[in-house]
Design a protein around this nucleic acid. Structure first.
Lengths: 172, 172
DNA sequence: CATATTGTTCATTTTTTATTGAACAAATTG
DNA sequence: CAATTTGTTCAATAAAAAATGAACAATATG
């Protein structure tokens, strides 16, 4: 008796998920990532891979990859549940934590890549070849530096890592 | 005698274009947009639609749409060229100008959309229905507000709109 | 005003990206 | 240690996005 209960959402849940699907697509992420985060966000209790598959009716592969990505940017927290061998997760709700994760995993590598391309470009050509573009090149180099300086400012602005902002003295 | 001169780039030009193709894809824009901006960036003189088609060997449609988008975010400036009826453009090199344009055209509308979805969601349900999610909902509402406050800070940080930063007294 | 030039639009095609699910590996259980 | 549970991987497929180019509108030219 395989209990394949058709997942049914309340209207509210459906709309919340749709909200995050929309948000995901806005920042260039697959819709399934938005669905998954939305599901966790709307849920009161920790969920496992199976729950995601069953409730969202998506494939095992999608669910697995989506959860992995969301973990990688710290949008999902791992929860221990006694007596259950499966991994369980809950939605991280601190914007700063998620933004930091996203920046570190997605944005910084791109920035680094661009900086390196520029550097190798400059090394590869003689100053006279580069001369006509010199000021423009220096300008886009400055872009990278500015972006790098900006990121920690953005992060701080987005608030505390701990939404309750308690000073625990136990910073990790 | 239709002069369909096969466009040939120097290595330097090719690499510069490739740099911007990469950057475009990093922020979720079509590669053709990156190619086009790169072409203008690498060029000393203003170019017209035809030049883009010929040099990049892309279709009229792509070139037209790419130029339109780049104009819309102020990444291309329109230039008047006496004795030529075609529109000519040059690359804008102020990061702030481009970032502002991108934010205004791409980011803000998404943000507004998200905010409105949330508002309608809150209006649509009774407080008791929303109660279990109250704090979480308030939290993501705060995300939107923070993002809104952050944008002008980011903008200012990215530097002057006029790369020479002259005080002309002619602010428009 | 007929013709040529310039640029846009949008249905079709191509390319890219996301999703699926079967096969697999790893860990756990009895 | 065989059977089961859990999660990952990745080739195949489906879906979405970008590029093409012919048809079109708008403007200029002679």
């Amino acid at each position: 008796m395989t209990n394949e209960a058709q997942a049914v959402f309340t209207d509210l849940e459906r709309e919340l998920i749709s909200f995050f699907v929309n948000a995901a697509q806005a920042i260039g992420l697959p819709r399934s990532y938005g669905e998954i985060y939305g599901l966790f966000f709307a849920s009161d209790n920790p969920l496992a891979l199976d729950d995601v598959i069953e409730k969202l009716q998506i494939s095992k592969g999608s669910a697995s990859q989506g959860i992995r990505f969301l973990k990688s940017i710290n949008a999902l927290n791992t929860t221990y549940l006694p007596g259950d061998r499966r991994d369980h997760y809950t939605a991280e709700t601190s914007l700063r934590v998620i933004a930091d994760g996203f920046i570190k995993e997605r944005f910084k590598p791109q920035l680094k890549d661009g900086t390196e391309r520029l550097k190798s470009l400059k090394n590869q050509y003689t100053s006279s070849e580069l001369a006509p573009l010199k000021s423009k090149l220096e300008n886009i180099e400055a872009w990278g530096k500015k972006a790098d300086l900006l990121l920690p400012i953005v992060s701080k602005f987005l608030g505390p890592k701990d939404s309750k902002s308690k000073k625990t003295g136990l910073a990790i």
